[in-house]
């Protein structure tokens, strides 16, 4: 599949837009349909698409394993960190009203960071799963 010209060209055209759409879904989630879960999945799907067309090793060079594994844990930490930040600022755990002087802005800030955390974890997990399955298949072929 790596030598198919049509796939390569169309893939190169489409993948930036897939990734851009994921970012749009992430940051526009407050106003339209979207949010962290969807954005993470779409972003991961874009990279999986890339890996299918250009080969797994190429994708691994761009998004290395170490980064993916860090993302896995980082997302949950960001989410929990927002909760703890609420504690430090004098509220309850996951209490967004204290994150800013204006409680409504505090809510916005809290929701934003929480969604970022969710997106990072979901994207990391999906990519990691795909890498695990795909790399296992590759090694079996070699053997």
């Amino acid at each position: 599949m790596e030598n198919n010209l049509v796939l390569r060209v169309v893939g190169k055209l489409l993948i930036p837009f897939i990734l851009l759409f994921a970012v749009y879904v992430q940051f526009h989630g407050d106003f339209g349909p979207g949010g962290g879960f969807q954005a993470g999945v779409i972003f991961a799907a874009g990279i999986v698409f890339y890996a299918i067309i250009f080969g797994l090793d190429q994708a691994r060079r761009i998004v290395p394993d170490r980064l993916v594994e860090t993302m896995l844990a980082l997302g949950v930490l960001i989410y929990a960190g927002v909760g703890v930040a609420g504690l430090f600022l004098g509220g309850n755990f996951l209490d967004y009203f204290v994150l800013d002087r204006n409680p409504v802005h505090g809510q916005h800030r809290g929701i934003f960071w929480v969604e970022v955390g969710v997106a990072i974890t979901v994207c990391g997990v999906m990519l990691k799963i795909f890498y695990m399955f795909a790399s296992r298949g590759q090694r079996e072929e070699d053997a």
Binding site: G34, Q107, I111
Partner: peptide
């Protein structure tokens, strides 16, 4: 919370 998308 002044976020139009209630689901979010």
């Amino acid at each position: 919370v002044d976020v139009p998308n209630v689901v979010t």
